[in-house]
């Protein structure tokens, strides 16, 4: 379990993380979502004791990260993939990590196998593709067989097969009872993997709820209706107190689900050509929620 309490980090006059509080529970995948510059990486660095909080605290399994005698056996972390020396082989990278926390050397081959890098284990990592680097980073995160796994933007640079592999891995780790904390700036990615969401923007928590709840709350929906008796249908639905907007030959109805709209129209004997529930995408919901907290926005927005 990871617990942050009023965690704050300021750099000079800029506040990167502003009084953030959350808990990341074991047994599920928690997505940590926010636009670039929202404070995700800074928060993760404080979880790992790399950056010192300006105020507040964060603990992993009840203790500050630095107070664990063998932290890699407590928390496994994928940092940015470039935290590797390009001249060192994958196996050697894992060897020194194992040595640093008293982890048996046999575990090196286990995690190489787990991430599918056994065949290239003795190549210098400078020759690795971005995806292979990510896999090695995940191997490093798992080397201590830790109960808590922290993955910072794990799908960056991965091909579709690799993305699916990370999703499955995250879900499997959570199913085993581990705490899995995955950051991303892509709503669609997190929605597919995470059971729970923590959304931050400008260093503050904007939402902390189950993914399904987030979707229900923030993804707006309407029913698209097409009918040869366009005006009659519109009048009927407005008469029922529904919010109906006409867009050319289509009506957008808010306030009832598709089945209820269909029944209303059917009972009055009018004809329908189309009846569709339209959900705005999660990406849209995320954009709406974080619109005010995006640090750098394109001029057209």
């Amino acid at each position: 379990m990871i617990a942050a309490h009023r965690l704050t980090k300021t750099y000079g006059t800029r506040t990167a993380v502003d009084g953030v509080g959350f808990t990341v529970e074991p047994g599920r995948v928690t997505g940590f979502l926010g636009p670039n510059g929202a404070g995700k990486s800074t928060t993760m660095r404080m979880v790992l004791g790399l950056d010192r909080p300006t105020s507040g605290s964060v603990t992993v399994n009840g203790r500050r990260y630095a107070d664990h005698p063998a932290p890699l056996r407590e928390v496994g972390a994928l940092l940015e993939a470039s935290a590797l020396h390009p001249g060192r082989s994958a196996r050697d990278h894992l060897r020194w990590l194992a040595a640093s926390n008293g982890i048996p050397r046999t575990r090196v081959d286990e995690v190489l196998d787990l991430v599918g890098l056994t065949a290239v284990a003795d190549q210098r990592v400078g020759r690795f593709s971005l995806g292979m680097g990510q896999r090695l980073g995940i191997a490093a995160a798992l080397i201590g067989d830790p109960p808590v796994v922290v993955l910072d933007e794990p799908v960056n640079g991965l091909d579709p097969e690799g993305i699916r592999w990370v999703r499955t891995l995250a879900r499997d780790l959570a199913a085993e009872g581990r705490t899995v904390f995955v950051s991303s700036h892509l709503m669609s990615e997190v929605a597919l993997t995470a059971d729970h969401l923590i959304v931050i923007g400008r260093g503050r928590v904007l939402a902390d709820c189950a993914t399904a709840e987030f979707v229900a709350q923030h993804a707006a929906s309407h029913v698209r209706v097409r009918s040869p008796q366009h005006d009659a249908v519109a009048t009927l639905l407005r008469g029922e107190g529904l919010d109906v907007a006409a867009h050319g030959r289509e009506l957008r109805v808010v306030g009832l689900d598709a089945a209820a709209v269909g029944e209303l129209v059917g009972r009055s004997g009018l004809l329908l050509h189309e009846l569709t529930l339209v959900r705005s995408s999660l990406e849209d919901a995320f954009m709406t929620l974080t619109a005010d907290s995006v640090e750098y926005a394109g001029a057209t927005r």
């Binding site: 040595a99 008293g102 201590g144 067989d145 109960p147 499997d172 085993e176």
Partner: peptide, 29 residues
């Protein structure tokens, strides 16, 4: 896949033994 994940250490009660005093030295070596 889960069978290769490891020894299910997350269910353990006790803290793992601290690595020996030479662990950091060996890692740097």
């Amino acid at each position: 896949m889960s069978s290769t994940m490891g020894t299910h250490a997350w269910t353990r009660i006790e803290t793992p033994a601290p690595p020996g005093a030479t662990a950091t030295l060996r890692a740097e070596w």
